[in-house]
Simulated assay, not measured.
Amino acid sequence: MARCLTIAVCQTGPIQRSASRAETVGRLVHLLEKAAAFGAEIAVFPEMALTTFFPRWRIDDQAEIDTFFEASMPGPETQRLYDAAARLKVGFALGYCELAHEDGRTRHFNTMDLVGPDGAFIGRYRKMHVPGSSEPEEGTTTHLERRYFEPGNLGFPVYNYRGVRVGLAICNDRRWPETYRMLCLNGAEVALLGYNTPLLLDEAPALAHLRMFHNHLPMQAGAYQNTLWIGAAAKAGLEDGQALIGGSCIIAPTGEIAAQTMSLDDEVIVHRADLDLIETCRKVNFNFALYRRPDQYKRISDPV
């Protein structure tokens, strides 16, 4: 009998700065309900799914900055989503801004949690590849993630979800081959990720027509080269004056896009992922045990 996991990608339209946390969580609950109605077993939400993408601004007041962060998960405003997961028997991966107290200090991470179909916490990932700068740069799209977030310190963990090995990634991580390779070497069969990506970059207007191509390209390559299913959820549309690309998708280990959103608004796509396809793809090209055995290769420094 084939092993399968029905994956839902829950794209959101823009989340304006004026939106309350309660309003936003309500939208996410509705998306999870739609995913469940479509037969999903797991869902993924975007990066920073609870707030606007605030790193587009320079903010100096730390108290104001911390209003975008979650001191605990679930918290009073997000508990509804966890309760919905338990009611619907559908787990999820959720991107959010994490306020952590570690090593005797307060730390800020761009985080994604994996939650089970019982609404219980399974595992956490913190974004490794933090892009942008700490100060605005002339001629460059303002993207101040390095001002507000530390690089992740949890590596690329992979978790068991209903007998399936699931890893997580966030936004800029998807552009780096190391992300997929580390997840694969750690045993991942499915990678879930969320992103917020501008439609236009001031520093590269000549590449504007390639934004969606460059969005999908590394994910398709990562899925193919590492024999993974990928579910990628975007925040889309015009958010606080900045256009976000959308293009949420589910990608097979063949590198093919199995499903893709058609809008720049709240939308759910679902695909029943055949996990046995992973083994088929490994037999064709990427049998690591056969082709990547260290004892089969001599280093340049080895004597002949």
Rank of each mutant, 00 (worst) to 15 (best):
R3Y: 05
T6N: 14
A8C: 02
C10T: 04
T12A: 01
G13C: 11
R17L: 07
R17Q: 13
A22E: 12
E23M: 11
R27I: 03
L32T: 04
F38W: 13
F38I: 05
L50H: 06
F53Y: 15
P55L: 10
R56D: 12
A63N: 13
I65P: 01
T67C: 12
F68S: 03
F69C: 00
G75E: 08
P76C: 06
A85H: 00
A85R: 03
R87F: 00
K89N: 13
V90F: 00
F92M: 04
F92V: 00
A100E: 13
H101R: 13
H101P: 01
H101M: 09
H101E: 11
R105P: 03
R105K: 15
H108K: 11
H108A: 07
F109P: 11
T111W: 03
M112I: 11
G116H: 08
D118H: 07
A120P: 00
I122R: 05
G123L: 01
R126E: 05
V130S: 02
V130R: 02
P131D: 09
E138N: 04
T140S: 06
L144K: 09
F149N: 07
P151E: 11
N153Q: 10
F156N: 09
Y161T: 00
G163Y: 07
G163I: 08
D173L: 02
R174K: 11
W176S: 11
E178Y: 12
L183K: 08
L185M: 15
E189F: 11
A191F: 07
Y195I: 13
Y195R: 14
Y195W: 14
T197R: 06
L201Q: 08
D202S: 11
A204F: 09
A204Y: 08
A204G: 03
L210S: 03
L217A: 12
A223T: 08
Y224S: 12
A232Y: 06
A233Q: 02
A243F: 10
L244A: 04
I245F: 08
G246N: 09
S248Y: 03
C249F: 11
I250D: 03
I250R: 08
A258P: 07
Q260T: 15
M262Q: 15
V270C: 10
R272G: 05
A273T: 08
A273P: 10
L275Q: 08
E279H: 13
V284N: 04
N287I: 06
F288M: 13
L290C: 06
Y291K: 15
R299A: 09
R299W: 13
P303A: 07
